[in-house]
Design a protein around this nucleic acid. Structure first.
Lengths: 346, 346
DNA sequence: CTGAAAGCGCTTACAG
DNA sequence: CTGAAAGCGCTTACAG
């Protein structure tokens, strides 16, 4: 591998001059150096650059599960921005383990210029230590309990929960269940809080047997849905608080041959690839995904002064919308499914 | 940040001794050094280590699209192995662009100890140059035209194509379409070749209007499916050669109100999260995903001597199986859908 | 087992 | 604008 010394020798200048040329400074022998670089196929040694400069040009990205389509999309957005700006992306998966997350962050602190993190819970020490060590951190999707002091890209989970509740109320449901995500995470709490808020304002209280706390995973949602079905009086609608939760619930309803939305309406949080293909097509609360990743990376680079964008807010909260498809409908009447159902369930 | 010198001073030894201790050699002052490391929270500077050793302890992973559930799963497998072994994972996305891929590989060659690559086409120069530069490369999912000389983890695409054809033949189909992936990629070619081979052996020729070449993406599959439907004599079965292809075809059939499998049977390649939830549930050719990633990473580390595993073959080809669900059934008879249909399409 | 020293490939104040 | 020199934080033959 050619070094800067080889280039210097060939171009008849000193290594310092080559270095200056490479950093974009004006030098007299620019042409000769350019030629030498090309002929030798010179590429700077990143380890040497980073040892000298103290900067790694690498960004750590820590997510709970890259196979979750939401995080895959977010990472895609991050990758496109980081590559464009000449940063490398170090990917790490925590498998929803706070312990692994803490280890990863401690390791990464020395190896990257900044970190984008979707924390497992909102009660964590690791990110605080990170901040103390001076590594910029941007949160995505999830926040810390005292999150106000960190940069973050989030969606309006509270509003998402509210809209789901409003949608079900408008259809006439009163016996409504929710399968929430873990309450120690921001999306888990806020989606539930928004949902409850609207129900309560409408004078509907959600009894404990309908207010179920899951973990954002499919298996638990499956089990909880079976529990809902075994109630003396099952709900007429379920709000599932994440894409995997929705899958678990749909599988349970499917296995138990429950008619959606004839017997039970379902509204999910996060669209699925196959959302429009399901029968009935799935009604969901939808949010930007790739865009969140793009913004998070830009926010982080902004901290380094590598992003020209002026006045990016330190916390970005994106809007959320409902996609009404066919899995929600008015509740069944006393003598069976509401007649409106057939019309909606094409 | 504490350096090895700080630790040495505190422990009353030389930096060389600290370095030896950290590398696992026996030293007299082990206890004092351990204490100093803990007290100072010392972590070695990777840039310095890598500058000195010439090794980066980083692996480059280059995939066409991280939001494709197949690649997300593969990357998850890779990440778990690399973290376990103390390697960092650098993720890059090519967006199916051979040009971007070439750039990425050239950059990475200097920055990583090895690369795992899902190449965009089988006719590429970049990986060959990589090999010349001495960086170990392992292919995953896709191969080069002269691939025999590279390590690789693949699935038996030929067999996958064959099994899909056998399944459709066994159901009685004779007018059968396939929407292939790009023929410049190994999976695109082999899946098609296996499929055609079995049809031909059965005396069925696939006319050009049923032998459609897509690009593994959803949009093109959607358009090609519409074309199939506009034929004077549409097929009674379609084999879609990838997960996204399947989505495009299902959406087209759905939009055109085609009854699956009453009018047309569909068998896909790669299962979908929602495969069992679709109505009808989707019949697919299924293959290991996370496991492919795990094996690819182990294969690569093996090249470094970092993986104890003995005798890992240089090329691993994993088996493939069919998951029979409800989207395939016998073709409709002259007077409408086959009667068997109702029974299968629960 | 241990330490002094050289060197990995860059960058950058310093002096010219 | 340019070059000589020091130094980023490690590792490792070399000598003891």
């Amino acid at each position: 591998m050619a070094t800067i010394h080889d280039v210097a020798a060939r171009a008849g200048v000193s290594p310092a001059t080559v270095s200056r040329f490479l950093r974009g400074q004006r030098v007299r022998s620019a042409e000769a150096i350019r030629a030498a670089v090309d002929e030798l196929g010179f590429q700077p040694n990143l380890a040497a650059q980073s040892l000298k400069s103290g900067r790694t040009r690498a960004i750590g990205v820590v997510v709970p599960d890259i196979t979750n389509p939401y995080f895959a999309a977010v990472v895609k957005g991050m990758e496109s921005v980081s590559r464009e700006r000449g940063y490398r992306l170090l990917l790490a998966n925590t498998d929803e383990s706070a312990e692994r997350e803490a280890e990863l962050l401690a390791e990464m602190a020395r190896q990257v210029d900044g970190i984008i993190l979707a924390p497992v819970t909102e009660h964590e020490e690791a990110p605080l230590e990170l901040r103390d060590s001076g590594v910029p951190v941007v949160f995505i999707d999830r926040d810390l309990a005292d999150g106000e002091s960190f940069d973050a890209v989030l969606v309006d989970n509270l509003e998402g929960g509210r809209k789901a509740a409003e949608h079900l109320l408008a259809l006439g449901h009163t016996r409504i269940a929710m399968i929430s995500g873990g309450q120690e995470s921001t999306p888990g709490r806020y989606r539930r809080a928004g949902f409850m808020e609207v129900l309560e304002a409408a004078g509907i209280e959600m009894p404990p047997e309908l207010d179920l706390i899951g973990d954002f995973r499919e298996e638990r949602a499956y089990q909880l849905t079976l529990a809902l079905l075994s109630l003396v009086e099952p709900p007429t609608a379920i709000f599932t608080a994440s894409n995997l939760t929705t899958l678990g619930t749909l599988k349970a309803l499917h296995d138990m041959r429950v008619d959606i939305p004839g017997q039970i309406s379902v509204i999910g949080f996060d669209d699925l690839d196959t959302g429009p293909l399901l029968r009935p097509a799935l009604t969901v609360v939808d949010r930007p995904m790739v865009e969140q990743g793009v913004l998070a990376m830009r926010l982080l680079l902004h901290r380094f002064g590598d992003e020209e964008t002026q006045d990016l807010p330190r916390r970005i909260v994106l809007g959320i919308k409902i996609i009404e498809r066919a899995s929600t409908a008015p509740p069944p009447g006393p003598h069976g499914p509401a007649t409106r159902r057939t019309g909606r369930n094409r």
